[in-house]
Nucleic acid binder design. Structure first.
Lengths: 190, 190
DNA sequence: GTAGGCATACCGACCGGTCGGTAGGGTGGC
DNA sequence: GCCACCCTACCGACCGGTCGGTATGCCTAC
C-alpha cells in the first residue's frame, strides 16, 4: 500500500518511462514531474531500478489474480478462454503505459529479479496452457494447432497493444476484447 | 550497399542494442565489438541515432518487398495470407535481433523519421488489410471479425516473436510459421 | 598533392546516487 | 504543562564518472 508521495513518484515514472524509455528518463525528470525532490525519491526507493521492478510487480500481480479468479468460476473451456482474454485485453488497455514499459524495458531487470519474474510468467503461461489443453482433450477445442502456439499468439497480441491502442480510438476496449476473443475462439474451433 | 566497415558497425550495433538496449549501449562498446574506432563510426554515421534508423530501414524495406512479391504472385486469398504470414514469421526469426531492437526502441526515433516510418508501416498494414478484405468480400473468409483486428493480431504475434523465440528451440521457424498461419486462417474461416 | 578513410586525444554536459542537514510530530519523564 | 529526545519524511547541493560527439592529423591510393 504505497503512500501519496510514493504513488506520485510511481505514476510519474510510468508516464515518463512509457513515453521516453527508462534510460532516457533522468531521476531529476521524474521528481520534477512528481513534484517531489530527489531526496524524497531516494528515501522510498533504493535505486532507479526499484521503480521498474515495482511497476512490473503491480502489473503481474493484478493480471495473475484476474486469471486465477476467472478459472475459479468453473465455467466451460470456451467461456473460460473468452473471459481470460477479455479481462486481459481490457485491463491492459486500462494500463497501456505500464504494459509499454514492461514490454520494452524488461531486459533491464537484474539477474535475480529476472529469474523471479520468469518464474511468475511461466506460471501464468502454464495455467493458460492447461485451460486450452483441457478443452482440446474434452473435445471443446480443435487440436489442429498446438496449445502452446495459441498461448503465444494470445499473449503476443496483448503485449503489442500499446503499439497501436489509443484510448480515444474508434473501438472501446470491451469491443476490441470481444473481437480478439472471437478470433482466438474461432481459431480454436477449426 | 554498405561497405565492410559500415556493415561490421551495424552488425555490432544490432547485437548490442538487442541484448542491452539502445541507451545502455555506449558508442565505445559498439566500436570495440566491431573492431573499429570511434573515428570510423563517426566517419560513416552522423550520430548514434543514425544506426537505429539504418537498422529499421533495412528491416522494413525487406519486409515490404517480401509482401509485394507475394501479392504479385496472384494466388488465392487464403494462399496469399498463408504465404505472407509464413514469410513474415520466417524472416523475422532470421532477424530476431533487428526485430527486438525495432520493437523496443522505436520510440527513440525523432519526429521526422517517426513520421516517415509511420507512413511506411501504414502502407504495409493497408496492403495486408486489403488482402483480407478482398477475401471477406468474395466469401473466402468469414466477416465475423473485422479485418483490421485480424491484421493487428497477426502483426502483433510477429513483433512479439523476439520475446520467446530461440533459434535452438524445439520448433524450427517453418514449423512455427505453419502453425501460426493455420491458426490465423482457421480464425478467418469461422 | 590531395581526398577519402580512418586513429587518438580530448571536451563539456549530464547523470545516478550520496550526504549533511532540517521540519515537525509523537512520546516519556517530571 | 512542558521540555528533551528521537524518528520519519524530506531537502538540495554536490561528486565521481561516463557518454556522445569533435578536432586534428596521419597514411595510403590515385
Amino acid at each position: 500500500m504505497p503512500g501519496a508521495t510514493e504513488q506520485k513518484i510511481i505514476d510519474a515514472a510510468v508516464r515518463l518511462f512509457a513515453s521516453q524509455g527508462y534510460d532516457a528518463t533522468s531521476v531529476q525528470e521524474i521528481v520534477t514531474a512528481a513534484e517531489v525532490t530527489k531526496g524524497a525519491l531516494y528515501h522510498y526507493f533504493r535505486a532507479k531500478d526499484d521503480l521498474l521492478f515495482e511497476i512490473y510487480r503491480l502489473l503481474i500481480t493484478s493480471q495473475s489474480a484476474d486469471m486465477d479468479r476467472i478459472i475459479g468460476l468453473g465455467l466451460s473451456s470456451s467461456e473460460t478462454v473468452r473471459e481470460i482474454l477479455c479481462s486481459l485485453v481490457v485491463s491492459t488497455a486500462e494500463r497501456v503505459d505500464e504494459t509499454a514499459v514492461f514490454v520494452r524495458e524488461l531486459h533491464r531487470l537484474g539477474e535475480d529479479r529476472m529469474t523471479e519474474f520468469r518464474a511468475e510468467r511461466r506460471r501464468y503461461h502454464e495455467t493458460f496452457l492447461a485451460v486450452i489443453e483441457k478443452g482440446q482433450a474434452d473435445g471443446s477445442f480443435s487440436s489442429s494447432v498446438p496449445a502452446d502456439t495459441v498461448v503465444r499468439i494470445a499473449v503476443g497480441v496483448v503485449n503489442q497493444l500499446p503499439m497501436w491502442y489509443r484510448p480515444d480510438g474508434p473501438k472501446p476496449p470491451p469491443v476490441l476484447a470481444g473481437e480478439i476473443a472471437d478470433f482466438v475462439l474461432a481459431g480454436l474451433s477449426a
